[in-house]
């Protein structure tokens, strides 16, 4: 069994977590202050996932903030960034509007600001 020390990134508390790993699976989690820490640790030791936030250009010249609607694989962040940088959004656009469906593993890219 391997014990891996992690810092939880789910909230600003930054709990120090000890994850016990057996056969590439997380079998025990200690040090988490809340249930989110357990979920984070279980995912982090198998396949780290991150929400990606960035911006895309719009047809009126302004930059539109965007994010992936769900976390994506950390290993695929730069591939997703390349796709994000190809997108040009049409205005008007509202928070939550889907700019690209399935940018990675069924996750959509959505707007996080309103531009008229």
């Amino acid at each position: 069994m391997i014990i891996k020390n992690l810092t939880c990134i789910e909230c600003p508390m930054g709990c120090q977590i000890q994850a016990s790993i057996e056969n590439e699976k997380c079998v025990d989690v200690k040090g988490n202050g809340c249930p989110r820490g357990k979920i984070y640790a279980e995912s982090e030791v198998v396949c780290p996932m991150r929400i990606v936030t960035s911006t895309v250009k719009t047809d009126n010249g302004k930059m539109l903030p965007v994010k992936t609607s769900m976390p994506i694989k950390k290993a695929e962040i730069f591939e997703v960034m390349e796709k994000i940088n190809q997108i040009k959004a049409k205005t008007p656009v509202r928070i939550g509007d889907v700019l690209k469906e399935n940018i990675a593993d069924g996750v959509n890219l959505i707007a996080t600001s309103n531009i008229n």
Binding site: C11, P12, I51, T53, S54, T55, P65, V66, K67, I95, T112, S113, N114
Partner: peptide, 25 residues
């Protein structure tokens, strides 16, 4: 908040991880 496009805002207040502009709106 308009230039803070990263997420992590509003976990206490809205129990969600919002971007800066989303929190502002």
């Amino acid at each position: 908040l308009n230039q803070c496009i990263h997420n992590g805002f509003g976990l206490n207040r809205f129990k969600e991880s919002l971007s800066g502009p989303e929190y502002a709106f």
